[in-house]
């Protein structure tokens, strides 16, 4: 199949970027989106040009490294799919695809389609952990966890921190990411001792990083490759209010 690509090219974070057009020729339908870009990059390099920079690592949808917006959809609009797992058979011969980096003030463009997502790491550093020595593995049922909670915690723990939620949000908010991390630990007994401090710190770090606020459109949920539910943001809103009230009373 043959496609026309309109790709955001930007030399570095300080230079202005622009859209450039490339022809993607003889692309097999079985290729993944990133393999298609690899083929296009081969052509660009053979012609003496600079290849299109993009991030990828596992290419099996579990690492959260790949990140691009295709025709306005983070990860390309295929439900529950990272862009590395998106295949060219979902597109039609002759399609014109606009490919852009994640857009958010907290995600400055490093080069072309590569953005700096360290803000998410700093949110994790501010509280996305439990301060306990885990030691060796305990017996499976030594620490009882209600089935409902373990299921929900696992749903939240699926977050791979790719930042698609931020990219899809018109406010550049990382609330879905944040809520998944807060929800995951907050649902398990190991997360209880630091539950209130954690949500306060992580929300404050989120705001400090310059991420926006949730306006409840749930575009994040629609593009999340791990289909994290927006009801985790509900839980975050509740947890934050409870923690703030406790902090106000000096109980945190």
């Amino acid at each position: 199949m043959n496609l026309t690509l309109k790709v955001w090219r930007q030399k570095d974070s300080k230079s202005p970027g622009r859209i450039e057009t490339y022809a993607a020729k003889n692309i097999p339908e079985s290729a993944s989106f990133l393999e298609m870009l690899d083929i296009v990059n081969e052509d660009i390099m053979h012609a003496g040009g600079e290849p299109i920079m993009f991030e990828s690592d596992c290419r099996e949808g579990i690492c959260g490294t790949c990140s691009m917006v295709i025709n306005g959809y983070a990860h390309g609009g295929q439900r529950g799919t990272t862009v590395c797992q998106l295949h060219m058979r979902h597109f039609k011969d002759g399609d014109e695809l606009t490919i852009e980096p994640w857009r958010a003030a907290a995600f400055p463009v490093v080069r072309d389609l590569v953005v700096n997502r360290s803000g998410l790491d700093r949110i994790i550093q501010s509280g996305g952990y439990v301060s306990v020595r885990t030691g060796s593995a305990v017996d499976g049922n030594a620490l009882p966890v209600p089935k409902k909670n373990s299921d929900l915690a696992m749903d939240a723990a699926q977050c791979i921190g790719c930042g698609a939620c931020v990219a899809a949000c018109k406010n550049g908010s990382a609330m879905l990411f944040l809520s998944a991390k807060v929800g995951h630990l907050g649902l398990l007994p190991q997360g209880q001792p630091e539950r209130h401090r954690r949500v306060l710190n992580m929300v404050r770090q989120h705001d400090q990083e310059g991420f926006g606020n949730c306006t409840n459109q749930y575009e994040c949920e629609a593009v999340c490759p791990k289909e994290i539910s927006s009801t985790f943001i509900t839980r975050l809103n509740r947890d934050y209010a409870v923690a703030s009230a406790r902090e106000l009373l000096g109980a945190v």
């Binding site: 309109k6 955001w8 859209i19 917006v69 025709n71 306005g72 959809y73 609009g77 606009t98 852009e100 857009r103 958010a104 003030a105 907290a106 899809a168 949000c169 018109k170 406010n171 550049g172 908010s173 310059g210 991420f211 926006g212 606020n213 306006t215 409840n216 459109q217 749930y218 575009e219 949920e221 629609a222 593009v223």
Partner: peptide, 22 residues
């Protein structure tokens, strides 16, 4: 705050489930 947080907008914008009202 949200306008600042978004920064540069997409050349091609699209939404999946955001309502007109929202």
């Amino acid at each position: 705050m949200n306008r600042v947080a978004k920064g540069e907008r997409y050349v091609k914008e699209a939404t999946v489930q955001a309502t007109v009202a929202s």
